[in-house]
Amino acid sequence: MAEILVLVDHVDGNPRKPTLELLTLARRLGEPSAVFLGAGGDTTIETLGRYGAQKVYVVDAPSVDEYLVTPAVDALTQIAASAEPAAILLPSSLDGKETAARVALRLGSGLITDAVDVTARDGGPVTEQSVFAATYQVTAHVTQGVPVITVKPNATAPEPAPATPAVEKVDVTFGPVSAAAKVVDRTPRTRSDRPELTEADIVVSGGRGVNGDFSVVERVADALGAAVGASRAAVDAGWYPHSHQVGQTGTQVSPQLYLAAGISGAIQHRAGMQTSKTIVAVNKDEDAPIFELADYGVVGDLFQVLPQLVDEIDRRRV
């Protein structure tokens, strides 16, 4: 069976959840081979194997951390040239998408970005995408070269399929442009104890209506074991970090439950949340567009409704 290259997204050697999802998807198309860039940790190979990687290509070169994107492009193109994979899957992150674009150009391949599902068909992979603020679902396939596909988080649930991967160290010859866009300084994001926005089953978001005080939103999130999201208005006001912004220019989420508090429901916000399974809104304006999408809505003051909700959750849980 043909190899399917999967670019590993990791923090200090720990593969992030979307990588495990990619390995799971790759098994539908062929034999997953993980491409790992950087210095691995003790359990890196084992983790990749647990989710079905038959092979792990390791490129341990300082360049991959010192320069933006292009070292990964050199590495993937070089590995693809010898492995002749049937497809290349990457995470739909900033780096993932740009790496994919350049790899596709170099290989003469077609590219599909932001897939929310990938399945196998006779001629190769078929993808599903959500477009136009998630109002359309598009089915597409690559018609030229080795398909290069970036996949959004949560496209599938990671399923273990234990394997003992063959490890192959690769010496990559980096091109001149690879030493051009230099990473001068890197500040890792501080992790909270809450689930990550893209990975959470439940997201509780606050908007301008929160009026500067996100603690009321955080309390609901914690009662439900949810991630915290925010509208751009709330982020722009400096009430919550940008990494929590939901929408067109923030993160696109698709959880089981999305609770919007004090958010009007502008098209750019909807673009990031309207594929959620269940949507609940609390807003004091009964004409707020967010109610058009809501499976359940409360017209009221969030400072009354949310604390009562938390009390009620606590009461129901004892």
Partner: peptide, 18 residues
């Protein structure tokens, strides 16, 4: 280098109980 097999409009979300 890629082709769309089909583009389907998602059923608009229906409003629940408000």
């Amino acid at each position: 280098r890629s082709a769309v097999d089909r583009a389907v409009k998602r059923p608009p979300r229906t409003q629940g109980e408000i």
